[in-house]
Design a protein around this nucleic acid. Structure first.
Length: 496
RNA sequence: GCUCCGGUAGUGUAGUCCGGCCAAUCAUGUCGGCCUUUCGAGCCGAUGACUCGGGUUCGAAUCCCGGCCGGAGCACCA
């Protein structure tokens, strides 16, 4: 210790470079089979993206199959458009699945297993009122139906289809003394009279999530289940069913809740907001949907990196937009060509501008990749400049440097040409600002993340832009082209 | 209220299972400098954390107990 203080400096020990990324899955025995199982009640949001991406990342590592399973066993919570939207969102996320199953196609399968379960004496038809059962259950008391014979249960089961909604449910026997009341004798099947958007009124008896999920996970040979920790109790419920059937239990992995700063993630809240006109649609930039994020110019790779970094730990996570921007910026930086955009434009007329400096000025589409070519800007005495920069110049009295052009100054309500010399501007500590000629600018507007709209003028060469291009408006930020209407362009702001 | 889960810098993460190599990793953010005719990129630097209190131990981010804080579930939604 004393010797160390004498300054015997060790050469830097080479740090072990641990494999950065996801922790290994437990219980691996060869290839894995996983599933992504959303409820088709709307498009995917960032929370879904986590499950989808992590599943896919693990498959990439271990090999195996990903099954997309649409969980539409509640006719009341199905949006017929969601089936399509979910696939679109997954495709955008670059998540591929090898097989797709839709639970409403598999109802007879659930019936078969329900019947088998009754025969095993592991489930019973319960005709108690919900509130009555809850009271009994909360006191660890069985309801009378629990004692029914297999024959009687089978008989009621056969009749269930003709009973009124709420008339009976099929319950899975668990442990009536389980310390968590939620686990006690949960419901496997119920009656729903509503028409199902996909299968119509073909069925009146529908499985509940825990039952359908367990049957499917087994039948589909799922080895590892990734789910949020809000399903912790469900996993425990499902284990009873695995035991009843004598099935092997897949490995359940629960991850923590994911929240986005300033975003309400819930599909139902978003839907309500859309219906009330609060949001413009599923891709409203204030929402946490995949399509909203996409519209804001965020790349799927950024989300992928985010999800891999967050991983599968059980602690909750709050993701900030800055975090996403930080991951997205390097992705956009290389691919985004540069353009001049004047937010809140102020028209100025430069006096004393020599004819010799007017004309076309070439500026690279990307400063680091000159081979990509150049855009041409028409420079003249009548210009649009950003209001902020003009105001600043007037306040400080410092000259302004117009990028790749000239120096000007503001004096007594007039704008004077000073020089073309860059060194002059450097010495004067001038701001170096973008500009667009009055005679050639395009109208543009930028939709900000809070949906406010910023009007401005874009340089003429922006006419070549197409929807979905992401560009950097110099000194302003990265934006995605959302609409091109004639000579007016609408952008969505991504980030600085 | 009951049951369960979690708590490392502003944020996200590594380390926690098998205590010492952790005066704690990496990234991002923030701030400063250099560079650049973008406020982008790049380069350099700085800042900043083990929720608290006990206990076990020669030694605790790591094990045990309790508090505090946060989250989830709790009738036929997924």
């Amino acid at each position: 210790m004393e010797l160390e203080k004498l300054g015997v400096k060790e050469t830097v020990v080479e740090k072990r470079r641990e494999e950065k990324g996801l922790v290994d899955l437990p219980n691996l025995k060869g290839p894995v089979v996983m599933r992504f199982a959303p409820n088709p009640s709307g498009p995917l949001h960032i929370g879904h993206a986590r499950a989808a991406i992590l599943n896919q990342e693990y498959l990439k590592r271990y090999g195996g199959r990903l099954i997309l399973r649409l969980e539409d066993t509640d006719p009341r919570r199905v949006d017929p458009e969601a089936y399509q939207m979910i696939e679109e969102d997954l495709t955008w996320l670059r998540v591929k699945w090898q097989e797709r199953v839709i639970q409403s196609d598999r109802i007879p399968l659930y019936y078969e297993h329900a019947e088998k379960l009754i025969e095993l004496g592991a489930a019973y038809m319960c005709t108690c009122e919900g509130s009555k059962f809850k009271n009994l259950k909360d006191e660890s008391k069985p309801c009378p139906c629990r004692e029914l014979t297999v024959e009687k249960n089978l008989d009621l089961w056969k009749k269930m289809d003709s009973m009124p909604e709420g008339g009976a449910v099929l319950r899975v026997k668990t442990d009536i003394n389980h310390k968590n009341p939620a686990i006690r004798d949960w419901v496997a099947m119920r009656i729903v009279e509503d028409e199902h958007p996909r299968v119509g009124s073909k069925y009146r008896v529908y499985p509940l999530m825990n039952f359908a999920v367990t049957v499917d996970d087994h039948l589909l040979g799922i080895t590892h289940v990734l789910r949020g920790k809000d399903h912790l109790a469900n996993s425990e419920k499902q284990e009873y069913l695995y035991h009843h059937f004598g099935w092997e239990i897949p490995t359940f992995i629960h991850y923590g809740r994911l929240k986005m700063e300033d975003v309400a993630l819930s599909t139902s809240k978003a839907r309500k907001g859309i219906e009330e006109g609060l949001y413009t649609g599923w891709d409203d930039p204030r929402l946490g949907t995949i399509r909203a994020i996409q519209r804001r110019g965020i790349k799927p790779e950024a989300l992928r990196e985010l999800m891999v970094e967050i991983g599968i730990k059980m602690a909750d996570t709050i993701v900030s937009w800055k975090k996403i921007y930080g991951l997205n910026r390097p992705l956009l930086e290389e691919t985004s060509n540069r353009y001049f955009f004047i937010p809140n434009p102020v028209k100025v007329e430069i006096e004393g501008l020599p004819k010799s400096v007017e004309g076309l000025i070439k500026r690279p589409l990307h400063p680091d990749f000159p081979e990509r070519g150049y855009r041409e800007l028409n420079f003249e005495g009548d210009l649009y400049l950003p209001a902020d920069d003009v105001g600043d110049a007037k306040k400080t009295g410092k000259p302004l440097r117009l990028i790749d052009a000239v120096n000007i100054k503001f004096e007594d309500e007039k704008v004077q040409y000073v020089s073309a010399d860059l060194e002059y501007a450097r010495k004067a500590g001038s701001k170096i600002v973008q500009w667009v000629a009055v005679s050639s600018g395009l109208k543009a507007e930028i939709v900000m993340p809070d949906t406010s709209i910023l009007e401005g003028i874009l340089e003429a060469s922006g006419i070549a832009l197409k929807v979905d291009d992401v560009v950097q408006l110099e000194r302003f930020g990265f934006t995605r082209v959302d609409q091109v209407n004639g000579d007016k362009i609408r952008f969505y702001f991504a980030h600085k």
